[in-house]
Design a protein around this nucleic acid. Structure first.
Lengths: 262, 262
DNA sequence: AAGTGGTCTAGACCACAAT
DNA sequence: TTGTGGTCTAGACCACTTC
């Protein structure tokens, strides 16, 4: 239990109604906000905080867990508690599926990653057929069976999103879409070659906390939500030809959309 | 300490590496997922769980705090811990700012709420002038000063979002836009009357955990993220005439966008 | 008054990391 | 070996809700 750099943290207000662990969390949050602890910097250890505030260890841990829940800090076993660096965010532009971004022999994800000087990977590739869920079925016009394509995307080694695509089997069966690697331009390019010229996409955006499997797949730190994006692609005949259900690490993305005023 | 309805919860695996509080959280999560505890239903009390599992109270509380962090349950002092009901979500369509939705004498928020049979309110109305932040300044083309309009929106009494609009002072000063109530159709209608015919909007969508003031303003339960939406409005001359920074309760919204394939 | 969750203590032993 | 965070115990007192 070494001494704490003086001045960074204050003292408790015994007359306050605010719980002690909240006061400690408030002071740490404020110190981080003021830059007294930079991104990636180590906070005082639990025993240092115990010594500084004169409280029990559980109280200190309670305070730290508040900050962890806010996504402000993360702990590393045996090392300490650190201010969470904000990772670089990937900006998804609303024209990312425009045709002219497609005819380049690579997937949209890869093209964009390389343009940003990042290394991209795709893993967990799975292709199968199944009966659609009620939600997917409704979006696709009630096909009996669908082709399911699942994959995970990594940027510079970090998993940032995973996605599952659903396509009516009568469209996709026996085509390159059903192959593990659908070829240059991805499945949208293949769909157009098959005569399904794409006209528009609908996207639905939600945010929530991850389920434990999602947190594991995306290696999410506590306090990081996920963005759920469900995209439906329509061809020029107005038929829904694909539904893509994506779960993204919210700290890795900003979605950009352009809306005409009409 | 009363007995627990048998069969709903299992026993601990002492040979498992998984921490006891995680095993308890897993079992509760699974029971909720299977519908053994419906939305809004009360979980066994802490002392019941202590009795059932034969662990200390802190271990049970640790397990419950895991579920709370996931947004699965919420606790009410003196009453119990309950499965969080998922509130009705408001669907924001991408044409919500289209002109034909504007000329009806009411704000977009009010119109949409009434169409859904909900009661809407706006409060915390504040209008002031200030120097723009670096971010707002960059988006608006570096005006010296901006008009700032802040307000909070409630649906059926529940706060669901708050928003801050920034407009270049040379556009807004001395106009109805600077009044607390800008009149029918909102500030977009007033902007068009002032000769700034709107052409397009850009929206940026992010998600993260709320700061404590945000959680207070939106009365967010633990484990509920916020969606941050920054919208920039451009007139037909290509000038940015407004930036609107919105923070929304993520459990109350789904954002819908339409993208042309081009 | 009884039951509930909220806060806090003062320990204990463990697993992981740095030295 | 030392310091760190991870887990767990067995209490205590408090505030809120319900009866």
């Amino acid at each position: 239990m070494t001494a704490l750099p003086s001045g960074l943290l204050g003292v408790l207000d015994a007359t306050s109604d605010r719980a002690v662990f909240r006061q400690i969390a408030d002071q740490l949050r404020e110190a981080i906000g003021k830059g007294h602890f930079a991104e990636g910097a180590k906070l005082p250890s639990e025993s240092e905080l115990v010594g500084h505030y004169g409280v029990s260890r559980m109280t200190v841990r309670n305070a730290l867990s508040v900050l962890q829940g806010e996504g402000l800090v993360h702990s590393e076993h045996g090392k300490g508690v650190f201010v969470r660096p904000r990772p670089p965010v990937r900006r998804l532009a609303s024209d990312r599926f425009a045709r002219h971004h497609r005819d380049q022999g690579k997937s949209a994800f890869t093209v964009e990653a390389e343009a940003a000087g990042s290394h991209s990977q795709v893993d967990n590739l799975q292709v199968r057929e199944e009966r659609p869920s009620a939600d997917v079925s409704a979006r696709l016009g009630s096909p009996l069976r669908v082709l399911v394509r699942h994959r995970r995307y990594l940027l510079d080694g970090r998993p940032v999103e995973f996605a599952t695509s659903y396509l009516p089997l009568d469209i996709a069966k026996g085509t390159p879409i059903a192959a593990p690697n659908p070829g240059p331009g991805g499945i949208y390019a293949r769909l157009e070659e098959l005569g399904h010229r794409l006209e528009r996409f609908e996207e639905e955006v939600r945010a929530r906390m991850p389920t434990p499997p999602e947190a594991k797949t995306l290696r999410l730190a506590p306090g990081v939500p996920v963005i759920r994006l469900v995209r439906t692609a329509y061809d020029t005949k107005g038929r829904a030809v694909e539904v893509c259900d994506t779960v993204m690490a919210a700290d890795a993305y900003v979605l950009a959309y352009e809306l005409p005023a009409q």
